Lab assay of single mutants.
Amino acid sequence: MEQGTVKWFNAEKGFGFIERENGDDVFVHFSAIQGDGFKSLDEGQAVTFDVEEGQRGPQAANVQKA
């Protein structure tokens, strides 16, 4: 798993971006967030995640709040 920081996340649209430790950004969809209840992330929040190849390039999977 990688570690990163939430760059931004739009809860209304259900997606955002995580900044990886290497400085690259990776797309995150709310469906990739682990846990119960409303799935959202806060700007600046530390997270761990896997990276999978999506239809439009790399995207975060198995996102967990650190």
Score class of each variant (00 low, 15 high):
residue 1 M to S: 13
residue 1 M to Q: 14
residue 2 E to L: 12
residue 2 E to G: 09
residue 2 E to M: 14
residue 3 Q to L: 11
residue 3 Q to P: 06
residue 4 G to D: 01
residue 4 G to I: 00
residue 4 G to C: 02
residue 4 G to K: 00
residue 5 T to Q: 10
residue 5 T to D: 04
residue 5 T to K: 14
residue 5 T to F: 12
residue 5 T to N: 10
residue 5 T to W: 13
residue 6 V to S: 02
residue 7 K to A: 05
residue 7 K to G: 03
residue 7 K to F: 03
residue 8 W to K: 04
residue 9 F to G: 01
residue 9 F to C: 03
residue 9 F to W: 14
residue 9 F to D: 01
residue 9 F to L: 03
residue 9 F to T: 03
residue 10 N to K: 09
residue 10 N to D: 11
residue 10 N to H: 09
residue 11 A to N: 11
residue 11 A to K: 15
residue 11 A to F: 11
residue 11 A to D: 08
residue 12 E to T: 14
residue 12 E to K: 13
residue 12 E to F: 14
residue 12 E to L: 15
residue 12 E to Y: 12
residue 13 K to E: 05
residue 13 K to Y: 10
residue 13 K to Q: 09
residue 13 K to W: 11
residue 14 G to W: 02
residue 14 G to S: 03
residue 15 F to E: 03
residue 15 F to I: 10
residue 16 G to F: 01
residue 16 G to M: 01
residue 17 F to H: 03
residue 17 F to M: 09
residue 18 I to Q: 00
residue 18 I to E: 00
residue 18 I to M: 02
residue 19 E to F: 13
residue 19 E to W: 13
residue 19 E to G: 12
residue 19 E to N: 11
residue 20 R to Q: 07
residue 20 R to L: 07
residue 20 R to W: 10
residue 20 R to C: 06
residue 21 E to S: 14
residue 21 E to L: 14
residue 21 E to N: 14
residue 21 E to H: 12
residue 22 N to H: 12
residue 22 N to W: 08
residue 22 N to L: 11
residue 23 G to F: 08
residue 23 G to I: 04
residue 23 G to P: 02
residue 23 G to C: 06
residue 23 G to K: 14
residue 23 G to V: 05
residue 23 G to R: 09
residue 24 D to A: 11
residue 24 D to L: 12
residue 24 D to F: 13
residue 25 D to P: 10
residue 25 D to A: 09
residue 25 D to F: 14
residue 26 V to Y: 04
residue 26 V to D: 00
residue 26 V to P: 00
residue 26 V to N: 01
residue 26 V to I: 14
residue 26 V to Q: 02
residue 27 F to Y: 07
residue 27 F to H: 03
residue 27 F to R: 03
residue 28 V to N: 00
residue 28 V to K: 00
residue 28 V to S: 01
residue 28 V to F: 11
residue 28 V to C: 06
residue 29 H to Y: 05
residue 29 H to I: 04
residue 29 H to D: 03
residue 29 H to S: 04
residue 29 H to T: 03
residue 30 F to K: 08
residue 30 F to D: 02
residue 30 F to A: 07
residue 30 F to I: 07
residue 30 F to V: 07
residue 30 F to N: 04
residue 31 S to R: 10
residue 31 S to D: 04
residue 31 S to G: 05
residue 31 S to K: 10
residue 31 S to E: 05
residue 31 S to I: 05
residue 32 A to K: 09
residue 32 A to N: 08
residue 32 A to P: 01
residue 32 A to D: 07
residue 33 I to Y: 03
residue 33 I to E: 02
residue 33 I to L: 09
residue 33 I to W: 04
residue 33 I to K: 01
residue 34 Q to Y: 10
residue 34 Q to H: 12
residue 34 Q to E: 10
residue 35 G to E: 11
residue 35 G to Y: 08
residue 35 G to I: 10
residue 36 D to S: 13
residue 36 D to P: 12
residue 36 D to I: 09
residue 37 G to T: 07
residue 37 G to M: 06
residue 38 F to E: 09
residue 38 F to L: 09
residue 38 F to V: 09
residue 38 F to Q: 08
residue 39 K to P: 07
residue 39 K to L: 11
residue 39 K to E: 05
residue 39 K to H: 07
residue 39 K to G: 06
residue 40 S to F: 13
residue 40 S to K: 12
residue 40 S to P: 04
residue 41 L to I: 05
residue 41 L to T: 03
residue 41 L to P: 02
residue 41 L to S: 03
residue 41 L to R: 02
residue 42 D to E: 15
residue 42 D to G: 12
residue 43 E to S: 14
residue 43 E to G: 14
residue 43 E to F: 13
residue 44 G to A: 05
residue 44 G to F: 06
residue 44 G to P: 02
residue 44 G to S: 06
residue 45 Q to M: 14
residue 45 Q to G: 07
residue 45 Q to T: 11
residue 45 Q to C: 07
residue 45 Q to D: 15
residue 46 A to W: 11
residue 46 A to I: 14
residue 47 V to L: 04
residue 47 V to R: 00
residue 48 T to D: 05
residue 48 T to I: 12
residue 48 T to H: 07
residue 48 T to R: 11
residue 48 T to S: 12
residue 49 F to D: 00
residue 49 F to A: 01
residue 49 F to Y: 07
residue 49 F to P: 00
residue 49 F to I: 02
residue 50 D to C: 08
residue 50 D to F: 14
residue 50 D to L: 14
residue 50 D to V: 14
residue 51 V to Y: 06
residue 51 V to W: 06
residue 51 V to A: 04
residue 51 V to G: 02
residue 52 E to C: 08
residue 52 E to Q: 13
residue 52 E to R: 10
residue 53 E to N: 13
residue 53 E to Y: 13
residue 54 G to E: 05
residue 54 G to D: 06
residue 54 G to H: 08
residue 54 G to W: 05
residue 55 Q to G: 12
residue 55 Q to E: 13
residue 55 Q to I: 13
residue 55 Q to C: 08
residue 56 R to I: 06
residue 56 R to M: 10
residue 56 R to H: 11
residue 56 R to G: 09
residue 56 R to A: 10
residue 57 G to D: 03
residue 57 G to L: 04
residue 57 G to H: 05
residue 57 G to A: 05
residue 57 G to F: 05
residue 58 P to L: 12
residue 58 P to A: 10
residue 58 P to C: 06
residue 59 Q to M: 09
residue 59 Q to L: 06
residue 59 Q to W: 10
residue 59 Q to Y: 15
residue 60 A to R: 00
residue 60 A to M: 01
residue 60 A to Y: 00
residue 61 A to Y: 10
residue 61 A to G: 08
residue 61 A to P: 01
residue 61 A to I: 14
residue 61 A to D: 04
residue 61 A to R: 11
residue 61 A to C: 08
residue 62 N to W: 06
residue 62 N to Y: 07
residue 62 N to I: 04
residue 62 N to F: 08
residue 63 V to M: 02
residue 63 V to E: 01
residue 63 V to T: 03
residue 63 V to L: 05
residue 63 V to A: 03
residue 63 V to N: 00
residue 63 V to I: 05
residue 64 Q to A: 10
residue 64 Q to E: 08
residue 64 Q to L: 10
residue 64 Q to I: 12
residue 65 K to N: 10
residue 65 K to I: 14
residue 65 K to Q: 10
residue 66 A to V: 15
residue 66 A to Y: 12
residue 66 A to L: 15
residue 66 A to W: 11
